[in-house]
């Protein structure tokens, strides 16, 4: 995984307007950002635009990323997902389009980091599959379909409180998986 020292150094280089640093960030995280955004917006052109906006956001405000508060992956993922959801909510009519077939091939130059990331993502995928179906559906609706918890409640025919708790339980299960994974990698 990229170290905090690497992330701090990259942040300083971005602040100094070193565009090679942006290129490195892109190589490291573009597949993650693009795949996530495409999964939410289901429109390759929009996914490209949003991916570009995410990296330009990092370029223009690198100081907003604080390595002490979390990894760059989380920061980019949060930004990417928020923009993707904003897009979906604006483009409601297009939201249900068929997902373009896509493979899961990932290529980036930092083989070690991405190998670890792929393994972690696989553990997360397994954790999602092991969730009770009603929790998995709630995550699907909220995270990938851009629904609010209130909409999740309506769609699933459950009280809002139940929708909130399903999301919470599911996300905590994933967080625990990650924490176990983190321990395993450093063992």
């Amino acid at each position: 995984m990229p170290t905090v020292a690497w992330e701090r150094g990259t942040r300083e280089r971005l602040i100094a307007r070193d565009d090679a640093a942006l290129g490195e960030c892109y190589d490291q995280y573009a597949s993650f950002v693009y795949g996530l955004v495409l999964r939410v917006v289901r429109d390759p052109k929009a996914a490209e635009d949003i991916t570009q906006d995410v990296f330009l956001g990092l370029w223009e405000k690198p100081a907003c990323f604080d390595p002490a508060k979390g990894a760059l992956r989380t920061w980019l993922g949060t930004l990417a997902h928020r923009r993707a959801v904003d897009h979906v909510r604006r483009e409601e009519a297009r939201r249900r389009r068929d997902q373009t077939a896509h493979n899961r091939v990932v290529t980036t130059p930092d083989v070690e980091e991405m190998a670890l990331a792929l393994m972690t993502a696989e553990r997360v995928r397994e954790a999602l599959e092991l969730l009770p179906p009603e929790q998995r559906e709630a995550i699907q609706l909220a995270y990938f379909d851009g629904r609010t918890y209130r909409e999740v409640a309506v769609i699933m025919g459950i009280p809002e409180g139940t929708a909130k708790s399903r999301l919470r339980l599911a996300l905590r299960r994933v967080a625990m998986t990650l924490e176990e994974e983190d321990l395993r990698q450093w063992a």
């Binding site: 992956r73 980019l76 290529t107």
Partner: peptide, 18 residues
């Protein structure tokens, strides 16, 4: 922060080369 990290990793299950 913990849950946001988890959410980002859910996103990572969909990684796809642009």
């Amino acid at each position: 922060a913990r849950l946001s990290t988890a959410a980002a990793w859910i996103g990572a299950t969909e990684a796809l080369t642009p």
